[in-house]
Nucleic acid binder design. Structure first.
Length: 235
DNA sequence: GCGACAG
DNA sequence: ATCTTGTCGC
């Protein structure tokens, strides 16, 4: 997949990858205006990609394994998968982990042969201290619609949604709806969905439910997680 | 000031 | 993220 295949106005890449908290936060502030939250996004897509990264510790220099799995959105069949191993260029810092996971993820996206029309990220988008989580960041840099799906709460408050699959409750912070706690499996802890880029919250949740036929996590993320841990594409 | 804190 | 045994339930 070509860096920037597809669309609109995108920012210049930073001259150097940030390596301090202050620089990283400034970069988030610089890029945040490029996020498109008004675009409702595609109703249906042909190809959807799941992104995830596995690693041993929290430090800079640790070995990271990024995985991108592209699925046929209708059948959920895997049509392409890429694994990339790189050294972390940033330590794990809550609110800044895009600076840790993004480099290998972008490398992997570069090597994907089937260009996805939607990215599903492991983490948050809008539901972020500076409204610029990983899903926003990867969306802005690639120009592709992106959704954030997280496994644990980070910012904001929410009521516990009803126990049936499909039930949800808004995640609110400072009188602002930043995402949804969405039940993907009846009787199972919800996932936390937020807009990344070029997609509406309703639509994002629709896609997440459609991509979650059996497990708590959407298939694209589940498969990317499995791939990043094994480091070897399944037979 | 203190704790909490996506992965 | 990763470390880790058994255990409850469909």
């Amino acid at each position: 997949m070509e860096q920037g295949a597809g669309v609109a106005e995108r920012p210049e890449m930073p001259e150097a990858w940030p390596h301090t908290v202050a620089d990283a936060e400034a970069e988030q502030e610089r890029l945040r205006p490029f996020v498109d939250l008004a675009d409702p996004g595609p109703e249906t897509v042909r190809y959807v990609a799941g992104l995830d990264v596995a690693y041993e510790g929290q430090d800079e220099g640790d070995r990271l394994t990024a995985a991108v799995v592209v699925l046929d959105a209708r059948t959920l069949d895997v049509v392409d998968q890429v694994v990339v191993r790189e050294r972390a260029r940033f330590p794990y810092v809550p609110g800044l982990f895009a600076f840790r996971e993004l480099p290998p993820l972008l490398s992997a996206l570069d090597r994907v042969r089937v260009t996805p029309e939607l990215l599903v990220c492991d983490g948050y988008g809008l539901a972020h201290p500076r409204r610029f989580g990983l899903a926003c960041h990867v969306g802005v840099l690639t120009g592709l619609p992106a959704i954030g799906v997280a496994k644990t709460a980070f910012v904001g408050r929410y009521e516990v949604p009803a126990s049936e699959r499909g039930a949800w409750a808004p995640i609110v912070e400072r009188d602002e709806v930043v995402g949804r706690a969405l039940r993907t499996r009846t009787g199972v802890k919800p996932v936390y969905v937020s807009q990344g880029h070029r997609i509406g919250l309703d639509n994002a949740c629709r896609h997440v439910l459609r991509l979650t036929p059996e497990y708590r996590l959407p298939e694209p993320i589940r498969l990317a997680d499995r791939l990043s841990r094994s480091g070897v594409p399944a037979a």
